[in-house]
């Protein structure tokens, strides 16, 4: 792999320092902390939540402290009747700006093959049980739209600040393969 970088550099296509900077940006600027802030804000600010579900990219664009978001981010809300889950069966599409680079399992064959056919069984691999009377909705990211799950706010968090709530939001809860932490659970 190094040889390829040498050739691209010698041919004058890329500056190695620019590659370093890309890697550094991925390592520091993006990650699930961005998505967690969006979720916690939606839990505490009903007007923001409405705007977020209406147009995710636009609503997140109004938050100065979250890094820039690409177009066509669709936020889908979990309810007592419906659990949402996101997959990309064809490759690895994932809301990078909100969640960072996807974990290996998200890009690997077991998840990509099974999420659409047996979502409930697949969730069991994560130790996640969704009761049988709750609809499971799987969003296959087959275009340049990106999906972020808005999980349900955990019980027992009445009066919590946005900042406190952010700590409860896990990456997997925003993919739909997990739930937020319960108050008092270890992070």
């Amino acid at each position: 792999m190094r040889a390829l970088e040498t050739i691209l550099t010698e041919k004058g296509y890329v500056e190695p320092a620019a590659l370093d900077a890309i890697i550094q940006a991925y390592e520091t600027k993006i990650g699930p902390h961005n998505g967690a802030r969006v979720v916690a804000k939606a839990w505490t600010d009903p007007a923001f939540k409405t705007a977020l579900l209406e147009d995710g990219s636009k609503a997140i664009g109004t938050l100065g402290h979250v890094s820039r978001v690409g177009d066509h981010l669709v936020v889908v809300e979990n309810t007592p009747q419906r659990h949402n889950m996101v997959v990309c069966t064809l490759c690895s599409c994932y809301p990078w700006e909100m969640l960072g680079l996807p974990p290996v399992w998200y890009k690997a064959a077991p998840y990509r093959s099974r999420a659409v056919k047996d979502p409930r069984g697949m969730l069991a691999d994560f130790g996640v049980t969704v009761p049988k009377d709750i609809e499971i909705r799987v969003w296959d990211s087959t275009a340049e739209t990106r999906f972020l799950v808005l999980p349900m706010r955990p019980e027992g968090t009445e009066g919590w600040s946005e900042e406190q709530l952010t700590e409860l939001v896990t990456r997997d809860s925003m993919i739909g393969t997990g739930f937020p932490r319960k108050p008092g659970a270890p992070s």
Binding site: A108, A109, S113, R114, V116, K117, D172
Partner: peptide, 16 residues
């Protein structure tokens, strides 16, 4: 083979 939706036999999801 990239079009994996619905295929069987790839085993369990193993989060790291």
């Amino acid at each position: 083979v990239h079009d994996m939706g619905g295929m069987d036999g790839f085993g369990k999801v193993e989060p790291e």
